[in-house]
């Protein structure tokens, strides 16, 4: 056997004192940690985002007031959106890099593979990359619908106005968009049903006393987020069927 295995030679990275940062992003546990932290922070964003969007049920005034107040604080928005962008980017980068590494760890596959966990059918955990990819696609579409674009036209060709409420309903009225939003919300829930509790495990925040609770909270959280967003897509356009958008 070799001696002194896996001990890195000192290099530039040590000179500038960033070995810890390098390991944070490159070691298996460091990567899981960053994955977990970014995941939980994104969960925080989801809570705020859902809380805001549920105002769609309250009506145009409530929702538009909220949207205008948010947009007035542009300094905050720049920081928040940059932060979100970095969180997404890190989360996605690590998803690719760990999945790639994991695939390399077993080159020859089993002819048959079965779970040994009694009662497990197809776990959300086995589909994290796939569900994450679907969520990513949905997020991009969602941004294209309601965030990106210029000169009053979004990336999908819809005309949008200052009436955030009307814009949203306009997108959701399209039956295809609506189906995509519902499916996106459900897949997001599946992703969270494993991801939430899993993040605690990755962060080492486990304790025999609290772990059962964390797992339950994780499932409840996933359901609340999925049902919350899906219900908006499903019901908001129906409730406000007669709404006339404010045009300029």
């Amino acid at each position: 056997m070799e001696t002194g295995s896996a001990r890195p030679k000192a290099g530039l990275i040590d000179w500038i004192g960033l070995r810890w940062f390098f390991l944070l992003l490159s070691s298996s546990i460091g990567q899981k940690f960053v994955m977990g932290v970014t995941g939980l922070l994104l969960c925080g964003f989801l809570v705020a985002h859902l809380a805001g969007n549920l105002l769609l049920f309250a009506g145009a005034k409530w929702f538009n007031d909220y949207a205008h107040k948010l947009h007035e604080q542009w300094e905050f928005l720049i920081i928040a959106e940059t932060g979100l962008f970095i969180l997404f980017l890190a989360h996605i980068y690590l998803a690719f890099s760990t999945s790639f590494g994991n695939a390399k760890a077993r080159e020859e596959q089993y002819a048959v593979k079965q779970t040994k966990i009694s009662g497990r059918v197809i776990g959300a955990n086995t589909w994290m990359f796939a569900s994450g990819a679907v969520v990513l696609g949905f997020v991009l579409l969602h941004l294209a619908d309601l965030r990106l674009g210029a000169d009053g036209i979004n990336l999908r060709g819809f005309k949008y106005t200052d009436d955030a409420f009307g814009n949203t309903l306009m997108v959701l009225k399209n039956p295809i968009s609506r189906a995509v939003y519902v499916i996106g919300s459900i897949v997001l829930g599946i992703h969270l049903s494993h991801g939430f509790a899993s993040a605690f495990q990755s962060l080492g925040l486990n304790h025999p006393k609290y772990m059962p609770l964390i797992k339950i909270v994780g499932k409840v959280f996933a359901v609340v987020i999925a049902v919350g967003f899906a219900s908006i897509a499903l019901f908001a356009p129906e409730i406000w069927r007669g709404y006339v958008p404010v045009s300029h």
């Binding site: 295995s5 896996a6 070691s27 760990t98 760890a105 779970t115 086995t126 990755s202």
Partner: peptide
């Protein structure tokens, strides 16, 4: 040190699947 060796030996990462 043990995690560094584990990574160098090309084991995969943990997905918390509990298998």
């Amino acid at each position: 040190s043990m995690v560094a060796t584990m990574d160098a030996e090309q084991f995969g990462n943990c997905s918390n699947t509990a298998e």
